[in-house]
Design a protein around this nucleic acid. Structure first.
Lengths: 254, 254
DNA sequence: CAGAACCGTCTCGGATACGAGACTCCCCCT
DNA sequence: AGGGGGAGTCTCGTATCCGAGACGGTTCTG
């Protein structure tokens, strides 16, 4: 648990609360975060004081407070990932002649953070701020492939999680697992026509310093559309993802 | 600092980072949060591990990480305040026959969280998700009036912070201070035609258990428009705000 | 080139924060 | 009524986390 248990636990509690659809009781929280009861009270009291948690006395529940919201929008305002990746994405576009983008995983969706369009390329459905189902996009698959299996399972508890856009793509957890295993084996993620018919993508994950994915980075192109073999694109995408990973002190994938 | 210093400090660091327009150096952070340097490293290491902070090694800066974003959107998903206040707002609308809403302060803006329209009343410019300058709205003024003076000053560092919509409203920090002092004296906040000409509002703040405002609650009406004196509305607004405050374990204002 | 300023890492001893546990309410069962 | 489960609060001793400080590296700056 590192060197600052109280801090780590506080953050874990925050993440746990953020993952809940509704405020939870202290019992569930303590159990889920593996906290002694008295410690849970200490922590929650501090979090309430700082406005990160609201206590709902007559429901015996704890929910997220407005400070949590402020922190979240602070991320959007600072755009640390955008700041880091924009230049590298532009270089990638120059090198490949194709459009590139950066996404973050958000629940089961990918959220487009940066988009660099190649001149003379068709506009994409994607745009900054747009969300798409992660399991259908190359960048989403790159992220999912770097997650522990347990987390993927938690994200996709049943078949209803597998929406599709054009009748293609995985429809079950086992199908997704096969896809992600192939992705890891291959060393990069792909998608062909599953987001937009006629367009394909190649993606790789940006990893932080303990190998957890923080973003996905992809190039979208028209397969067979005059472009040469995708091999140089693959190399460029992987190189760029590794470069961005390095800039956040992360490991380089694979 | 309560009983769990490490947790409290972690949260303070998060709030500080969230308030910065760009990633900051460790020196500035340690100074601003009044942390010993080595402690700051301990904390940041834990926060980086949990994904709440990104370290940008070649800029010597620390910024918010994706976990911060997830926590923020967790608040939006849970809607703890909305959950608490919706019913009370509906009762308020029934009692007054006027439209009512709940807002949170976000930077210098108020963000509309819940809106209950009274039947047969004109639609408002406000709608859930809309932002308006806090110093022009009644609910924003109610919140600002409950904040320590130092925080108000920090929010409005210079005249450029004072945008206006219809040429009315405070244009300087001192004018705002007078307005807020009047508000405190009066016991509730008002606004007349500063958001939309021809409409006025009466508001009161929702306070948490240490008296900090977490939301503002207002009724909007047409002044002199056939309605009786605003006194019963004032009483109803204050009663509702106190009721919501109580539901989050807060103090009742005044 | 010297010096200052800052960043990141590490060590280690003392103050203290954390966790076991006891206690009280309150609510929901039979 | 009696019993059980869970919430909230408090105490207290000790294992352990925090902070002073030293060290090395790098970047400015005069």
């Amino acid at each position: 648990m590192g060197q600052v248990p109280a801090a780590t636990r506080t953050l874990r509690v925050l993440k746990f609360l953020a993952a809940q659809p509704a405020p939870v009781s202290l019992g569930r929280l303590a159990a889920a975060c593996d906290l002694p009861r008295s410690t849970a009270y200490h922590l929650l009291a501090a979090m309430v004081d700082e406005g990160f948690v609201v206590h709902l006395p007559d429901e015996h529940r704890y929910g997220l407070g407005v400070a949590a919201f402020e922190v979240g929008s602070g991320f959007s305002r600072q755009e640390p990932l955008q700041r880091l990746a924009r230049r590298q994405l532009a270089d990638l576009v120059d090198a490949t002649g194709e459009s590139a983008h950066l996404v973050a995983l958000h629940g089961r969706d990918v959220l487009y953070l940066v988009e660099e369009r190649a001149p003379g390329r068709p506009p994409l459905v994607t745009d900054v701020g747009v969300r798409l189902p992660a399991h259908l996009t190359a960048s989403g698959r790159a992220i999912l492939a770097s997650l522990p299996a347990a987390q993927v399972r938690a994200l996709y508890p049943d078949r209803s999680a597998f929406v599709d856009r054009h009748g293609v793509g995985p429809r079950s957890l086992s199908a997704l697992r096969v896809l992600l295993a192939e992705t890891r084996q291959r060393g990069y993620a792909t998608e062909e026509g599953e987001v937009t018919p006629g367009l394909a993508s190649i993606a790789s994950a940006v990893l932080d310093h303990n190998g957890h994915p923080v973003a996905g980075l992809a190039v979208t192109y028209t397969p067979g559309g005059g472009a040469a073999s995708p091999d140089p694109v693959v190399a460029a995408v992987r190189r760029t993802a590794a470069a961005v990973s390095r800039r956040i002190g992360g490991r380089t994938a694979g």
